[in-house]
């Protein structure tokens, strides 16, 4: 496998990724989150309903099937790529973040309570350049998502923001929290102004790399997926904290110098991060 942006994880790396993921999943479960699993592929029509192809066409990846009527008689050795003429229309997409599937899976639900959901997503982003574990085409993202009223989402981000800060401090990793804008494909640059005045994304930056983020969606997904409060019938507010797991590997390796030391420190900090509640 030698394509840019695709990287296999060796045993030590995979082990550390699993420790990190179990830690973050555990934080979610601590906070009452349902720990769910989502399909990797999502219907293009559903992602389009979330404005995904308006906002992020530059990141989009599609999964297509071969049109066997057109492909049938051709030789199959030495294939480097498939010409679009032998492909069926692309009905499925690869998501760039884990939480899209959560909202789509909850389409039409009426929530009687504020809730949390946590998922590990296989995510995909087409980038102009790829860089080791720092910038990948295919990567894993753990998310802890809040759905409910605005106060619930605000409290969720504050609580998990504190938890991430405490974890990074325990690891001895210097970090900054920076307001950020989503990498919208924005023809007019209009979106940036409101995002600057009223940030909806904050990132935890370690070694110039965003390894986790806190995101406010207001009631956008509640509205688009018709997820409403059972009591008020209003679309729910949503927000999420997200962890780019391979990016965590990258900064941990760089900071601790080898996988064994990184794993030992993460396990220690992870143990200490439980039992304190949120």
């Amino acid at each position: 496998m030698s394509a840019p942006g695709l990287q296999a994880l060796a045993t030590d790396e995979a082990r550390l990724l699993r420790v990190l993921d179990r830690t973050f999943e555990g934080w979610g479960v601590d906070g009452g989150a349902e720990s769910m699993m989502m399909p990797v592929l999502l219907p293009v029509a559903d992602l389009a309903r979330l404005d995904f192809y308006d906002n992020f066409p530059h990141q989009a990846m599609l999964a297509v099937q071969l049109d066997l009527q057109k492909w049938d008689s051709r030789p199959t050795t030495g294939v480097q790529s498939f010409d679009p003429s032998v492909l069926e229309p692309a009905l499925l997409g690869l998501p760039s973040a884990a939480c899209f599937a959560v909202y789509l899976s909850m389409q039409g639900e009426r929530l009687t309570d504020n809730i949390r959901v946590t998922v590990l997503g296989n995510c995909f982003r087409r980038e102009e350049r790829y860089e080791g574990l720092r910038r990948l085409l295919s990567f894993r993202m753990r998310e802890i998502v809040a759905l409910g009223d605005k106060e619930h989402v605000d409290a969720h981000l504050a609580e998990y923001g504190n938890r991430i800060s405490a974890f990074l401090t325990a690891l001895g990793l210097p970090f900054e929290i920076q307001a950020a804008t989503d990498p919208f494909y924005d023809r007019g640059g209009q979106r940036a102004l409101l995002q600057k005045l009223s940030p909806v994304k904050q990132e935890f930056i370690v070694e110039d790399l965003a390894i986790a983020s806190m995101n406010i969606h207001r009631n956008f997904f509640g509205e688009r997926c018709d997820i409403r409060s059972a009591t008020t019938n209003s679309p729910v507010f949503t927000g999420c904290v997200a962890f780019g797991l391979e990016r965590w590997l990258s900064v941990l390796y760089s900071h601790f110098g080898d996988w064994a030391s990184a794993a030992a420190m993460v396990e220690k900090a992870a143990l200490a991060s439980f039992g304190k509640g949120i």
Partner: peptide, 13 residues
């Protein structure tokens, strides 16, 4: 208007 998204980032300008 902002939190309710009656005015969103596209219509703000």
């Amino acid at each position: 208007l902002i939190d309710s998204r009656l005015v969103d980032s596209l219509s703000f300008v």
